[in-house]
Design a protein around this nucleic acid. Structure first.
Lengths: 222, 222, 222, 222
DNA sequence: AATGAATGAGACTTCATTCAT
DNA sequence: CATGAATGAAGTCTCATTCAT
């Protein structure tokens, strides 16, 4: 009985430990989104988490480690999302590539709060490096997958002049840029608009696979 | 020689207001590039400028104002560069659009130091807002010019399906994203590589005006 | 002995909020008395309190708030003293008025340390205003009580020409002036001397209730 | 001719020197009255004087010396005023004492600006000491004169119980207290009201020489 | 496991003073 | 005489971290 109780408590404590960590990571993201990275203090974080000031140094070793973990969490969240979408998508290269791109503009990923945090981290060398260290493989995986899909589409459509690797990298960069523009000019750039621009790019490169959307020509006279 | 020395001292002693301001703005950019925004203090800035700590509050009213001015300076520097390049370029829309894009990848603008600073500012809401307030018009001007050029090219080449406004915005976003990738992955993304990707994008949209570069297909087997 | 030591440490470690606040207010008064208001810094205050510099912003929000609280504390201390003395005094108007005046020259109130602080605060508009805002009612109460007592004495003694309100205000002003003179000329003005002058004033206005003290004529030849 | 010119210039310069000093002392008083002693800086002073920052260290040796001079100036101004009034007054002791008291409430002396400065200085030990050192003799002179007049009045009226020295000191203290009350409660205490209270005090001590003013009984029922 | 009072290093800012012009 | 840019010491305040409870 004692063992069982001990185990239960132990489990609970362990569980509680993970819960507390996630609670603090969430609070960190909330705080950065609300106040910015430079105005995010242990006080603002623990206040968002409804916990006491000293607790961070208990669950994480320092503020810095907590922030690093938060960077990693965001990257992993993104990773999990596109993998799930990818698995659920149709079997064709076109459908899979679409799924990947759709993931980048999913409301869980591409929203002001998260974007604010992303670019806050990108802005600081320290966290940029942390991101690279922790997320290099994740990013490489996605790029590699994109390259594979692009090659397949290239062969299917005979788009001989397309450099698949280069295009995959361009797609990544384009998404980063669109994210930044959503953050900078929220009135002009909506999530949908950004996604449309992304697919328009695809259409210009793989016209037979991703046809031009008629509605975007509305503001232009042909 | 004595005269020269005397003059040098004279210059150093009581420099004109504008010279000191620029000296401090340059030092600010150096400091952010070297230490990051959050580790940039009055001490690091004035140390880069070889001046005393108190001087910032004399020429600017506070650290914050100095940083705001630095944001503005970067935007203006970019603005001046592309206007100059644009004026020097050939008369055709294709040449002019090329000049605009080349400006974005000019070593004076697109280098690690400046990019570090740009994204440091983008990462903080406070400075993002400062950027918008101060540079909105500059950005709009460039976009408007890009749209005009795209429309002209569209008519020249009969690219009916292209939405000029949307494409112009996409080009801007693409450049932002490429800049970020240069910052994040300097080993993969060189200035030249980024520019190539940008022109490849143009080639896919305006194939007759911006022909595909053969060399980019080197890593792909057709 | 161990228990005692443990208890002492316990007390010192995490004192109750109110204890710390009072400790800091006392230290503030000590510092102003010792160094003057302008030379009183966070360092001198916390040094008197044997605490770390940062603690003031924890218990009070800023140095300014601490000083405001110190003003209020002095006023309240005075208030409590005269109310206590008043309650303990005999029932006659004469006795009560005497009790009020005696309070003004009580060693707990009327000593160099406290007077130094009073006039330091009076000297700065900011704290003068704080004093008014916080202590207006306290002062009014005392004046009102003085007026009531003077009226009663006036009726008892038939001092028809006395304006009770005016006289009450004069008494207040007189005390302020005597305090200042104790501060300015400590060699000439002792607490006792000031009190004597005050009662001599009373004697000249209410001669039947407050008889002239013979000993004060010692330095004059009649 | 040269000598004359030199002398003229010399004179002018000397004159100008005194003018500048007074200009700065006036500006100091203005600044303390406007901003308070603690917020009075070389910048606020020289700004009031419409002069450059560095000039104080030229005409006075330091900020502190300037403030000391300002203390002395105020005392001297007061001194000159009552001496002049005294000289202009009638020959009787009553008239002369009246002249002395009237001086204390003259608009040139007893106004918010000057009172603010007086009590700002009284509040700081440093300037209190400076005041004592520089003005002790002035104050003693006035006290001595007051004592002489009081003795004369005492003999004239047979006010045997009055201690002239003590009363003279009380008068001084009373005036200081009334000044403070004018500063603290400008709505209640006007210059005229204070003077009335002062003469009411005189009336209570020397009833035959300073008759009670009827109007002050208006708010009291006899 | 959690709290939150306390610490103290370091940031920004102010300002009296200096000094070349 | 006068200016005002420049200095640098000192002040206030912030905040990550520690630690007794």
């Amino acid at each position: 009985m004692q063992t069982t109780t001990a185990r239960t408590i132990e489990r609970k404590r362990t569980a509680s430990r993970e819960v507390r960590r996630q609670q603090l990571i969430d609070a960190t993201i909330d705080s950065i989104a609300e106040y910015g990275l430079s105005a995010t203090t242990m006080a603002t974080i623990t206040s968002f988490a409804n916990l006491s000031q000293g607790i961070v140094n208990f669950h994480f070793r320092s503020k810095d480690r907590l922030l690093m973990e938060a960077v990693g969490y965001l990257a992993e969240e993104h990773h999990l999302l596109w993998q799930k979408r990818y698995a659920q998508s149709g079997p064709s290269a076109r459908e899979r590539l679409s799924a990947l791109i759709e993931s980048d503009y999913h409301p869980d990923i591409c929203n002001r709060k998260k974007l604010t945090v992303w670019f806050a981290f990108y802005g600081e060398k320290k966290y940029r490096d942390a991101y690279r260290e922790r997320c290099a493989k994740i990013d490489e995986d996605r790029i590699a997958e994109t390259v594979r899909l692009c090659r397949q589409i290239k062969e299917e459509g005979g788009y001989d002049h397309v450099d698949a690797l280069m295009f995959a990298q361009s797609l990544e960069a384009f998404t980063d840029g669109l994210w930044l523009n959503i953050l900078l000019y929220p009135d002009t750039f909506t999530r949908q608009r950004a996604k449309d621009e992304c697919f328009a790019y695809l259409a210009s490169v793989f016209p037979d696979h991703f046809p031009h959307q008629r509605e975007y020509q509305s503001c232009e006279r042909s």
